[in-house]
Design a protein around this nucleic acid. Structure first.
Lengths: 204, 204, 204, 204
DNA sequence: AATGAATGAGTATTCATTCAT
DNA sequence: AATGAATGAATACTCATTCAT
């Protein structure tokens, strides 16, 4: 990779990281492009060489970080065979990511929801990819007979994500650490695991 | 009630209902005060006789509708004794409300989150009141021995709300009716009910 | 005078006095009609029964207080024969009025100048009447030979008023009492008196 | 000076000059920022690159023009030794400036007073600098024995300025030229000169 | 005469985006 | 590629005034 290309990558990366910090701190709407530019050490106009507009910058963060999350999730699940156990690993991985990348999580969970585009027009394929992993776990659990056949994988997927995301939000937004990510992971895992397991497979 | 008082109430009510429709349709940010005023059949300035500013109008909708929701919930729960059954009634009531008051739900679930103030500064006491009902159900279930003692009522509450809210959002935002509120209610109820029940109390 | 008429006068008077206080305190522009109404103990609309509009209220204050000032000036000058001495009495009377009616002075000197209408369109006849007294003093002084014939009474009048008004403003606006109204009166009187006197009539 | 610097200076200068014309013609309050922008040939937003807000623009005009005035005054006084004569030169210079920069004078004398901030909060140091020249003339005249020792330089300064300013206002605001700046200068000079001179130094 | 709820015109300011250099 | 000065659209809010009661 040439020096120039390297610099190019650096600059784009600097903007993304600066944007995450600025968006997490001030919120997407209150954050000005010039704030991000200053934090990234570039000129305002430079941002537009890498991103179409302010919203696209937010969406790029979303896409890249969700993909990063999905890859990490697959790695965490690697070697875990039992579908019930995989549910627990999923929950643990999610809350662990929230804890380790707090600013990123705040942007993903809070600011991204603010984007009307995201909610109404944008199709968050990367989120769907991430959650499809859960859906697969359920289907596998059902075919193995450890999860109830009358669980709707599609609905369960959104319910599971809602639970993770809401607790993640409460964790990120609460200054006082009223929520332990570890405890949250186990609680959500316990509930969904037992909630979806067949009586035979259910832990006592 | 005197003619005057009646009219006065009507005007405020008209503004609130108009705001719900306009916010649901155009989104809080895109909605202009003059849009709300026109829809309510009042002058722009009149809105400021009843609400401090645009954001306060949104928050007022939240407060009033959440309170309405909580009262309805208590009525729905009235006469249902078993804590496990009460969880199911809660879920059913929630999705029923979403279906019946779609615009309100869209504002509460989607547009409200646009408000940075709501997310960062505002303390949504009315939401907490609504969810506290669930927390009480869990505590009662635990003292009756039908719910596991190692369920954390606080965490379970937010997980439950996250599941309800996420599915509610998917329902409200999806134009194609991929999600049936009835099915969603039963799924969430099933999962949480079984997920929190003691083995003895768990349905087979 | 009937009770009703009396009340009517009282209400108008209350508005005028309230307006003087409010205008002096907050400034004409920053003062809201509702501020004046509250201070006067009447409804907003009531003010419009007595005054055409906000500006007219200010102008009415000006007219009435300037007339009051002119009458007081004539009384103060009564019995003072020597034109040079009359100049001194004028200066003393002016600063004495400023001191005794500070709020009124602030409105007259400061806020009134803010009225574009006053400066561009409005013809402040009452001010002219007040200052015409000075012009007459000069003319009398000239015909008696105690004031120089090459003094232009018209120009001298405005110069004299400018001096009085500027010092009055400095007095009213300075929180720290850097200016003594008494000293100011004597200084202005001394300068104009000697400045306009013939060498023969000039005090040594 | 580089091309860039030149253009940059031009743009700011263009805004200042445009503002003077627009403020003089329509008045500060009636003038819209977009009026100034159009007159200056720039976009509305550009004005905010150089000035914090509308009021700051007015104050900047004041500062710059008062400084310009003071420098010109010192040049006019250069070589004039006698304090009494310097008073006359001051008066002539002032009215000459008013005549030659009518729009500037109108803004300084009339529109500036519209600013509540100017009157109540702002400390017009540049005006003080300008008038301090007069105060120095008086002190010098006293130490040379050509001006009465009982003249208060501070009070005389404000009286003198009041006279100049009031006549300047009457000149600027009167469409019909009822006031000759030359005559006004001589009148004010004559009165203050004789009014402050010692009997020995007083012109016959 | 008095009220005060309702009106709605009017505008400074922000900031994402562009583009000449 | 990078800059950053310049642009200009877009809108919540105020408050003098009105008028039905």
């Amino acid at each position: 990779m040439s020096e120039k290309a390297s610099r190019k990558g650096d600059k784009r990366e600097a903007i993304v990281e600066a944007a995450i910090e600025v968006f997490a701190q001030k919120g997407f709407h209150a954050a000005r492009i010039s704030d991000v530019a200053r934090a990234a050490g570039v000129a305002d106009g430079t941002i537009y060489l890498y991103f179409d507009n302010k919203e696209h910058l937010l969406l790029s963060i979303f896409e890249e970080k969700m993909e990063f999350l999905r890859v990490g999730l697959l790695a965490a699940l690697d070697g875990v065979d039992c579908p019930l156990e995989r549910v627990r690993v999923f929950a643990r991985f999610h809350f662990d990511s929230v804890r380790r990348h707090r600013a990123v999580s705040e942007v993903l969970q809070v600011e991204l929801r603010l984007s009307h585009k995201f909610l109404k027009d944008y199709r968050p394929e990367k989120l769907w990819d991430y959650l499809r992993v859960f859906e697969q776990i359920v289907r596998e659990g059902q075919s193995r007979g450890v999860m109830r056949a009358d669980v709707d994988p599609f609905l369960a997927k959104w319910a599971f994500f809602g639970a993770l995301d809401e607790l993640g939000q409460q964790y990120v937004l609460s200054r006082r650490e009223r929520i332990s990510p570890d405890a949250a992971a186990e609680q959500v895992a316990d509930i969904f695991l037992r909630g979806m397991a067949t009586p035979a497979a259910s832990p006592r």
